[in-house]
């Protein structure tokens, strides 16, 4: 197994784990972690792409590296925002559950603003 393939498989496994966690974990914090695992898998994919681009004659294709850096920054910002929201939700509601917010018909869930 070449190292490119290994990277690819690792990326796919991480992405799969992330998707599973996203579906199965009820806790927002775990979902945030799952999203990060999924994101890492995708970033690895970019690594594979950079390596394959290198085969064309360049030492390494720099563009995917630049994309990954940007992606990591975005993911970091997203994680920070999501954690901040989770904290605020825990403070306001006592727990951070995502369900139970679907207001049933006929019920007035209170003022929207």
């Amino acid at each position: 197994m070449g190292d490119v393939t290994l990277f690819g498989v690792a990326g796919a496994v991480l992405a799969g784990l992330g998707v599973y966690g996203l579906i199965a974990s009820p806790q927002p914090l775990r979902k945030i972690l799952a999203l990060n695992v999924l994101g890492t898998g995708v970033f690895l994919l970019f690594g594979v792409v950079a390596r394959r681009g290198a085969a064309a004659g360049l030492g390494a294709d720099p563009v995917p590296q630049a994309l990954v850096i940007t992606g990591i920054v975005v993911a970091f910002a997203a994680t920070a925002l999501a954690v901040a929201l989770t904290l605020a939700l825990t403070r306001a509601a006592g727990s951070a559950s995502l369900e139970s917010d679907a207001p049933a018909v006929g019920e007035d869930p209170g003022p929207p603003r």
């Binding site: 996203l22 927002p28 979902k31 945030i32 999203l35 997203a78 925002l81 999501a82 929201l85 989770t86 605020a88 939700l89 306001a92 509601a93 951070a96 559950s97 995502l98 917010d101 869930p109 209170g110 929207p112």
Partner: peptide
């Protein structure tokens, strides 16, 4: 409010 924070978090995730 808790309700809108929950909606925002769902949206974000």
């Amino acid at each position: 409010s808790a309700e809108t924070l929950r909606a925002a978090l769902r949206y974000l995730l």
